[in-house]
Design a protein around this nucleic acid. Structure first.
Lengths: 241, 241
DNA sequence: CGGGTCGTTGATACGGATCAAGGCGAGTGG
DNA sequence: CCACTCGCCTTGATCCGTATCAACGACCCG
């Protein structure tokens, strides 16, 4: 296959990267074609099926990855088993904590997920020679920090109903950017996961979903399929100004 | 005053920086003497007394700052007034969110605080030309992210007693690094602030403090002065493995 | 058909919120 | 110097939201 005729503006783009959407929004957008070529030699794709943990809490991490598809949950567990999901990662987020040898949380595929895995050292080398890359990761880290702090407000100060509505808003905001007021999506998380994300129990999540449904703020089919006829009403139920 | 004779190893170090402890642990440690000199021309020191807000939520931010002394609380407020403290910053932390025009939270001095203020553009210029600086800030952002996520576990899954013990552990960990098992400190926050940090009410915080005192895990004098005879016991009460 | 997982719904318990009163130290004015 | 007030904290009584315990329905798969 002749790469020259297929990708005139980036003649040396690696084959594996050519069809990758993550290249535009993700880490790879900061790299030159030559760097991508080099990186792709050391990277590999992996599929992780829903429910599989691929980084354990306290495990040492020797690789970073880019999410190509799917949703990953990051969680922390206490010694007695209490669990809190501390973040969700969507495509094309970058995962892995530069500078931390050990992961202080677990990463598990919430839905079937595809990732592109890079060895730790390759990324670190690239980061040293490409300030744009570090800038991009820095910027992403700050956004995650903002998200985490918003969620702290949710966890610390909102009622169960507001929490559930906040969660639904969050998921809706990752659907297609503009469908207007309306939003339709599949929940990437089970009730148990939602409970762990919101600091609630399964039963309370279930009850609040039912309540939102009865109030006409959402419609539910098959447990996972949700329709939000009016995002503003949902946001109001979530306590967002 | 002759700077050459006073600071032989950094002959051009600005006078204002020479006595600053933040220079070692904070942002400034990534800068050369020449850069410090340049930056110091645009920077100024400020003292903020306890209880004063110096960045409002939703305000636009035109400066960054380094905390030289004191404790700053970062908080988010809902439209109806419910409040959550989402982070505490201690010297020599750097404050201000690169890349965000608007602050999405308020910053208020919890204790009397001294800061060194830099104009936004000066920092951004330095960051562009000094990868080490961006690296340092990136690294600090990741640590804050870890802290925020640890706190999410506290907010979402811990009991009131564990929350209060977690808070005391956090404060103790910012005392002098090794006093062994023991720790003695002044609380930088009022009961109301502690409540806002833990997602509790004042009354519950007070009751749990009393309980920890009756269990011998802490001693309290004058409401603010706390002695922890055995940090391991406190950590156990905080639910930390 | 039986067994398993996941979600819903109901009854009850309990932890923390809310409402209310009072203590204590600091500042203020008589 | 004392009486008064004010902010901050503690303590008690009661209420309410969410957890817990329990039963059951829907769906899937063997």
């Amino acid at each position: 296959m002749d790469t020259l005729t297929r990708a005139p503006r980036s003649p040396d783009l690696p084959t594996v990267c050519r069809s990758c959407e993550a290249r535009h929004g993700g880490v790879c957008s900061a790299l030159t074609a030559a760097q991508l070529m080099e990186l792709s030699k050391h990277s590999s794709r992996r599929t992780i099926y829903a429910g599989n943990e691929f980084i354990g809490q306290g495990e040492s991490v020797s690789s970073y990855s880019n999410i190509l598809k799917g949703v990953v949950k990051l969680s922390k567990v206490m010694a007695d088993g209490r669990q809190q999901i501390v973040g969700l990662q969507f495509a094309p987020d970058f995962m892995g904590r530069p500078f931390f040898e050990q992961s202080r949380m677990a990463a598990e595929a919430a839905t079937d997920t595809e990732i592109c895995v890079f060895p730790r050292r390759a990324i670190e080398r690239l980061m040293a020679e490409t300030p744009e890359l570090e800038h991009l990761l820095h910027s992403q880290a700050l956004e995650e920090l903002e998200d985490a702090r918003d969620w702290m407000l949710t966890l610390g100060r909102k009622t169960a109903q507001e929490k559930v509505a906040s969660f639904l808003s969050l998921i809706a905001s990752h659907g297609d950017p503009e469908a207007g007021d309306r939003s339709v999506f599949e929940l990437p998380l089970s009730r148990a996961d939602i409970a762990d994300f919101l600091g609630l129990t399964i039963e309370t999540v279930s009850r609040q979903m039912t309540k939102l449904r009865k109030e006409g703020i959402i419609q539910i089919e098959n447990n996972r399929h949700v329709t939000v006829p009016d995002l503003a009403r949902l946001a109001a139920a979530a306590g967002n100004d």
